[in-house]
Nucleic acid binder design. Structure first.
Lengths: 196, 196, 196, 196
DNA sequence: CATGAATGAGATTTCATTCAT
DNA sequence: TATGAATGAAATCTCATTCAT
């Protein structure tokens, strides 16, 4: 990679990082490309040199987030993880990008269709891990015998609900940091076949 | 009521209905007041004759929705309702305004603060009914002893998740129409103290 | 005059009076016909029933003012008045309509051309009286031998200057009430052939 | 200064000049930013690229005028100037911007508060020079012993009166060009202690 | 005669995108 | 490759005027 290409790549990353920051704070829809350029410390036109259009820039940020989340989950996953560990892995990954991810799921229908693929991709990964451990537990009659999709959607729905109301549950800072353990524990209690 | 007042009220309702329709399809944020005017078949300026500003129009639509939902829930609620019946009542009310309600919960942070009050109002109503029936069931040891807020959030999160992905779960038509019964049944199963 | 015509005339006057009030406070340009209608306690459309257009309404108010001022000046003028008395008469007439008159002279170029005729009319009246008394004084060598137009313009300019800056000179209330006598006295001193 | 900055400055000046021209002809209030853009030969949006808002544009034009007038007066003023010379200096400065200045003083109450500061600034400069020369003349008993504020207001009132009626006194072209000398001469005559 | 609902032209302002430098 | 000035298409909102009731 020669100097020129290197420099170009550097600028691209600066813009992408600036965009991530801006979008994490203000969401994807509201901020102008002008704002992103200013945050990145480059000229307005430079944004369009690296990303054909605003849409492409948004997609790049989202794709980046997708990659980051899925790779984090992959890396932290070991065969034989307990249900608790799988859920923990998932929430820890989200927590690191809480704000950006929250905006992604909330503004999804207002974003280009390709963004939905990314979200589906993220969910497939966690679904895969969850399915494995849950199937086993079901066989062992340790958790209730409900369809995996329902259990999965309950879990994702619960997490997304806390994320969407993060400013209510945790006015400053991360909801997951505060509620992560409690959510996992309660969710597991809910699944358990319990005869007290 | 004389003809003039009647006519005015008629126009107001036409605009409100047009707005409800447009917002149900495209969300609250994207459509222009121009679009609403066209849909209502009135001049652009007429919209502002009846609603001081775009914000006020949006709030009127949302308030209308809030009223509609809460009154539906109230009307269908009888003391002594089973958990199943309470959940059913709630989902039936939402189902009638599924698209609009879905946009409301997704775009909430982008909407004026007053809109949040409306959503909080809706949730208070259902929370109240749910709390009553759940407390009783907990005492009777029929459902797991988890905090009400957690159970409530799990339920709302689940429903909102299906709503937010309604085009995925039910490409044309209502998700709740398709999944309502299944969601209620599964959720109840989840709550139950089960020793098979 | 039958009852119908009488009623009509009554409404016309109500609108005119309301307009005078509104224009006195806010000037001629800014207030909307809506505002005038509200102040008059009539429907918006009624304004246009009595006055073909906003322009015609403004002209009517101005013409009214012109009539009022010229007739006041005429009535208070007696042959043989001193310079002091003539100036006093003029300022007293203006003082009674200070705010409206001030807006008239300031916004004149933004008003229909006919309005200028009214202002010219008012000034002709005072010019006529002033010319008479000044000519006599000049003959008697009691005041400086300067052209009448110059003296007239100096006087009018001085008064208009105080009117235009009335909120500076008299933040609340009438400038003329406060400065009238002093202005007359000083102006006369200026004119006098003085060998002290 | 590179070409780009130069070009930008050029455009800014084109807009400012166009605005000055438009405002000189039509006043500050009536013309739309659209008109200014057209006159400047730039796109409508470009106006807002250089001036945040219409108000800012108007203020820029006015400030420009203020600077121009005060610097002209300063430059032409030498210690030891006669009354005639001081008045001459003032009128010559105004004459160069007669139309724009006239609109400024007439529409002042309709303009942003900052505009009033500019007018006050201009008047302070001329007041300062006038006070100096008049005080001396009063001591020498060459002019009447009237308060400076009154004399100042008489002078400014006189000039503003001619300016406000410039289209009457000089239908095409500058009033001051035509009346300047005469106004100064007459005003001085008025001040003089005269015993003929 | 009076009403006031409806109209639609126009005003300011924002912002993604282009292109000369 | 990078810049940032310029563009022009919206979008919201105001208001004089018309006209059915």
């Amino acid at each position: 990679m020669n100097k020129r290409t290197q420099q170009r790549e550097q600028t691209r990353i600066e813009i992408l990082t600036a965009a991530e920051h801006i979008y994490a704070v203000h969401g994807f829809i509201r901020p102008s490309t002008q704002m992103v350029a200013k945050e990145a410390g480059v000229a307005h036109g430079t944004v369009f040199l690296h990303f054909q259009s605003q849409e492409k820039l948004i997609l790049a940020v989202i794709e980046n987030l997708g990659q980051s989340l899925t790779s984090q989950i992959h890396e932290s996953s070991v065969p034989g993880h307990s249900l608790n560990e799988v859920l923990q892995t998932y929430l820890t990954a989200i927590e690191a990008n809480e704000s950006l991810y929250t905006h992604l799921i909330m503004e999804l229908p207002q974003l280009p269709k390709e963004a939905q693929q990314t979200v589906i991709g993220i969910q497939s990964v966690i679904a895969h891990h969850l399915d494995q451990v849950m199937s086993q537990l079901k066989k062992e009659k340790k958790i209730k015998d409900l369809s995996f999709p329902f259990l999965f959607n309950t879990w994702i729905g619960l997490i997304h609900y806390y994320l969407m109301n993060r400013r209510l549950f945790a006015p400053h800072g991360s909801v997951l940091a505060v509620y992560k353990d409690q959510l996992i524990a309660n969710f597991i209690t809910l699944l358990e076949v319990d005869c007290t």
